[in-house]
């Protein structure tokens, strides 16, 4: 998709969210935006009930990931709203009800729209790319490794958008946890070039669409060098309409 077409597509999605009176995109909607913008995401399809889920899963092909879709659940894994690596229709049928129950227990009044059936990604090193609008400087991109690196150690780097490839590379190398990506104890390097590309694209996206006030791609699976990086979960939030 060319830039003009991509812009049009993203604007369409964002407008439809606005029309719904919402500011927060569902995971599958966020991934639609990213995919339109050329950021690799794992295939993610929405299903409103079990029979639809079964049908969609056949298209996506097993193994799959099953995730809850609810505007009231921000941390899906905390709510036990994720099942990873379901390998058959039987497993999907068994897990579906359990998943809904888990979420109901976690938050009884949560509005549940359905689930997403997602392409399963093999294990990889996990990173986070985020974006925000800084009050002084505007569109800003954030990078860090997944898990404790960001949450506990606050090991993150920032750059203003849009960024050059060199800026993106610097922000990857700047974090203390960088050796994890460069490869320690005989592990090969992660696909840093693919991450550079993702960071740059995220930068362009928030630069072009300042109404995106927050974006969280967490996690992104960074595969070994040459094998790419794929967004496994994503959250996009739009600003208040002025």
């Amino acid at each position: 998709m060319g830039l003009v077409a991509a812009k049009k597509k993203v604007a369409e999605i964002l407008n439809s969210i606005r029309k719904d009176g919402r500011r927060e995109l569902m995971e599958f909607e966020s991934k639609q935006v990213l995919a339109a913008w050329g950021v690799p995401v794992n295939r993610t399809e929405f299903a409103s009930d079990l029979s639809e889920a079964v049908k969609v899963a056949r298209e996506v092909r097993y193994p799959i990931v099953l995730k809850i879709t609810s505007p009231d659940i921000i941390h899906k894994s905390e709510a036990k709203g994720i099942k990873v690596g379901l390998s058959s229709e039987l497993e999907l049928r068994q897990s579906f009800g359990e998943l809904i129950d888990n979420v109901r227990t976690y938050k009884p009044d949560a509005k549940i729209l359905g689930v997403t059936i997602q392409e399963y990604l093999p294990p990889a090193r996990e990173v986070i790319v985020g974006a925000l609008q800084d009050p002084s400087f505007g569109a800003t991109v954030m990078f860090g490794l997944g898990g404790v690196w960001v949450e506990v150690l606050k090991d993150i780097s920032f750059r203003l958008a849009p960024l050059s490839a060199e800026d993106a590379r610097e922000m990857i190398q700047e974090i203390k946890g960088y050796p994890v990506l460069a490869g320690i104890r005989g592990a090969p390097q992660a696909d840093v070039n693919a991450l550079v590309d993702t960071i740059q694209k995220v930068g362009q996206l928030v630069h072009e669409f300042p109404e995106i006030t927050e974006m969280d791609l967490n996690p992104i699976f960074a595969f070994d060098d040459g094998k790419g990086a794929v967004v496994a979960d994503a959250r996009i939030i739009l600003g208040e309409i002025k």
């Binding site: 800003t140 920032f158 750059r159 960024l163 800026d167 610097e170 922000m171």
Partner: peptide
Amino acid sequence: KIFAASLRQ
């Protein structure tokens, strides 16, 4: 951090 990064940039 954002301020420092932007100066560097």
